[in-house]
Design a protein around this nucleic acid. Sequence first.
DNA 1: GCGATTTTGACAACCATTTTCATTTCGCGG
DNA 2: CCGCGAAATGAAAATGGTTGTCAAAATCGC
Lengths: 128, 128
Amino acid sequence: MTSRREAVHDILRKSEGFRSAQDVYAQLRSAGAKIGLTTVYRALQALADGGKVDVLRTDDGESVYRACATDTHHHHLVCRKCGHTVEVAGPAVERWAEAVGAEHGFTEVTHTVEVFGTCSGCSTSARS
Amino acid sequence: MTSRREAVHDILRKSEGFRSAQDVYAQLRSAGAKIGLTTVYRALQALADGGKVDVLRTDDGESVYRACATDTHHHHLVCRKCGHTVEVAGPAVERWAEAVGAEHGFTEVTHTVEVFGTCSGCSTSARS
DNA sequence: GCGATTTTGACAACCATTTTCATTTCGCGG
DNA sequence: CCGCGAAATGAAAATGGTTGTCAAAATCGC
């Protein structure tokens, strides 16, 4: 684990929601770190490859990253307003995906699931 | 519904799996149509906005499109090898997403789900 | 300390997608 | 059919997230 990867991982550990490479880079630079954008991308990729970080694609096509709170398989419930993110287990989804795959003769079935909503904090402030 | 949008929609209706804008453009041009890449993108966007076409983002971040076989809410089971796609209903997923959202105090809950696997055709040929 | 290997950073390159703007097409009413 | 305003189009330029390149720096293991 090199110092740059550690710095990148640290930012994600201290963040609550998903962060883009551009975000992480901007934050590190404004904190005075000497790090290149390419290095940020590569660090994020290495962290993701090592299972330390989750990646998802936004509607815009950009990759965003979040430090894993748990090693177990999980999904994300993300506030569409503030980005607040909760890791959730999805046993019902796993079962459904397996069943649907089997029903149509598919093997090696994998799935992606993301859930979006408005969190209680944002619902409350939107009303005031 | 303009002639360009109709042409684009036609390509998707005659395709089985998801197609990228670049694919659709290449096919239209090689069939002799005089159409611009930008127009393809805009036609796809209009079709998606009108609910006639599903969009999803690939792992590469590229958008791909598929004509909707049904107006009802559905998900996709996609072969990772050949692109063969089946539309599937997911009542268990809907219930789970609602429950998970409610459990964490979220409102206006939406979800994205895609399922990937190797279809029976590809499993069979991979073995030969 | 040393050599081999890996990582880094700045810059260039890539590529899907969107913007710009002049032109064409569309849809409607007369 | 014609005229008109609005919408759509196409080509070229621009955008911006991401990756490749390559020399230099850092790391690793002995």
